[in-house]
Design a binder for these strands. Structure first.
Lengths: 208, 208
DNA sequence: CTACTATTCAAACGATCGTTTGATTCGTGA
DNA sequence: TCACGAATCAAACGATCGTTTGAATAGTAG
């Protein structure tokens, strides 16, 4: 029996396990003792490598969000500024990178749930961290949506984007009470999820 | 200086404060010492009146959900079975009771945030409690939506209702990153919120 | 091999957690 | 007024929390 994640360093094992347990039990609900035990590392390793639990949480976000938002901005740039681009294109540029990351082999599945947790947490420190580091991406997309929905007032647009963000976050994290059938794979489930989300959100944004 | 909630019993003061602090810090993040201190009652009062923290959490839900779901079912019955009822009517029957409860004088504002917390929590005990006690209401509404959207397959419908539920939950809890203007009151903010939600969700449900 | 740094380790720190205890006070019917 | 259950209280329980310490070990450059 080899250790669970033999190829990764202590630091990386902690990050991976923390992501999983934060998704499952929340930031307050998952203790460092649970994390280090599951990662097969010493308790003190967290404070040695990250300084504090708070910093570990931030690093869990940073590791995934840097890559995710880079892909999102790339996807947005890829569809260009040409007038033929549709609402669905922009929505897809926002959703698909998250979908793909959630299906990678290193266990990104848990991260979208961590993101949803962060959405529900009203912790000021965490919100400021996310806003400071990744707010520009949301503003970029808001601008793209604005050009595609010129008939909407600024207030109206923000309202709808707020709703869309909540719907996407929630649906990607698969928090619904309605369980998916057992015979569809996790991957096809998420692929379908993305398609439904894009169609639903586009219709909602265009309403009236 | 009178005590903060002089007209309420110890039991009710605990429930009210617990609701607020659970909304703000989560179930694991809010301690019984914080709750009892803010409610100006003895620490042991929680275990005396409720038995445990877990039971207190359930009682926080029960107090609001019994009333909320009664109003929801009444609103659904009120619009009747006549073919003139629209998707917007059913959505309104689901949303408006939550909106009104969130604006009552006894501080229901916090509860919609507690609900959103519960949505993000994957705690099996809590999910089972909610499903056992209030699942029939969701099934009732699902049936109403089904009749109004006959062209959708069962899978499609469930997909979209799942998205709608997430959007409603998060938007009602006002978790968005986009802050509302300071000059609009909390009440008009929520009223606008409900209207936008109904329009958005109706368009999304009718998509394609 | 030696010297030095980086990392891991067991153990303990003080603080806080949910819960329990037993005494005290309150409120009401006899 | 008395008696008895309900309610509140201060205090403490053992468990667990995040964090710190100092020694032991691993790894590397000279």
């Amino acid at each position: 029996m080899r250790p669970l994640q033999p190829n990764f360093s202590t630091r990386e094992r902690i990050l991976g396990v923390a992501e999983t347990l934060f998704a499952r039990h929340g930031f307050a609900g998952a203790s460092l003792r649970q994390v280090t035990a599951a990662a097969n590392v010493n308790l003190a390793a967290v404070n040695y490598h990250f300084g504090s639990k708070e910093s570990l949480i931030e690093e869990v976000f940073r590791r995934r969000l840097d890559e995710l938002n880079r892909h999102r901005l790339a996807a947005l740039a890829a569809i260009g500024e040409n007038p033929s681009r549709t609402l669905e294109d922009v929505l897809d540029a926002f959703i698909r990178p998250a979908l793909e990351q959630s299906m990678d082999s290193t266990g990104g599945t848990a991260f979208v749930r961590v993101l949803a947790r962060a959405y529900a947490e009203h912790d000021e420190r965490l919100r400021k961290f996310l806003s400071d580091n990744y707010g520009h991406v949301l503003r970029e997309f808001a601008g793209a949506f604005s050009k595609l929905l010129p008939s909407l007032s600024k207030d109206e647009l923000y309202w709808r984007l707020d709703i869309v963000a909540g719907a996407l976050t929630y649906a990607m994290a698969d928090f619904g009470m309605i369980k998916r059938k057992d015979n569809v794979s996790e991957q096809s489930h998420r692929e379908q999820s993305a398609q439904h989300l894009v169609r639903f959100a586009a219709a909602g944004l265009r309403a009236e």
